[in-house]
């Protein structure tokens, strides 16, 4: 029996449009970028913690534009860290293994932390290189 015979068609509630919650974020980003320049301190906005509709997010993404660097991370699902047209402002989206968005941030940093290699991991890498060299 095919599921098509069950006459249920879920109609999603109409997508609410712009709420006006996105524009103030641009001001906050400006503050954060200034702080990065003055003190070198990185910061972030947690987009999933704010009442933003998909339309708001589209508006924000459109305003910030696309930059030159896109980083893709394969770790328990895909993550993308894309620089926007404003250097130092990164749009970070984490997906789970099923492809659903688990969290979304705008990070203000010269390089997002997630991209940098951790010294302990570099140490493990150097151990591996030593092993390769010793086999030469």
């Amino acid at each position: 029996m095919s599921l098509d015979s069950i006459p249920i068609h879920v109609v999603p509630p109409g997508e609410p449009g712009l709420t006006g919650n996105a524009p103030p974020l641009l001001r906050e980003l400006l503050e954060m970028v200034r702080r990065l320049l003055e003190t070198g301190e990185p910061s972030a906005i947690d987009l999933s913690a704010l009442p933003l509709t998909p339309a708001d997010l589209d508006w924000l993404r459109d305003k910030l534009g696309a930059g030159e660097i896109s980083v893709t991370l394969q770790a328990n699902g895909e993550s993308t860290l894309n620089e926007t047209a404003c250097p130092g402002v990164w749009w970070v989206t984490h997906h789970n293994e099923q492809g659903a968005v688990t969290s979304q941030f705008i990070e203000v940093a010269f390089v997002p932390d997630l991209v940098k290699a951790h010294p302990q991991d570099v140490e493990i890498g150097s151990g591996y290189l030593e092993l390769l060299v010793s086999d030469l």
């Binding site: 913690a49 328990n76 969290s103 941030f105 990070e107 932390d113 997630l114």
Partner: peptide, 22 residues
């Protein structure tokens, strides 16, 4: 489980717990 996987997991967990992004 790599360090980045774990960092990513913690970022999402902190977001769910309404903790600041940092």
């Amino acid at each position: 489980v790599t360090r980045r996987t774990f960092l990513k997991y913690c970022a999402t967990l902190a977001s769910m717990m309404a903790l600041p992004p940092t």
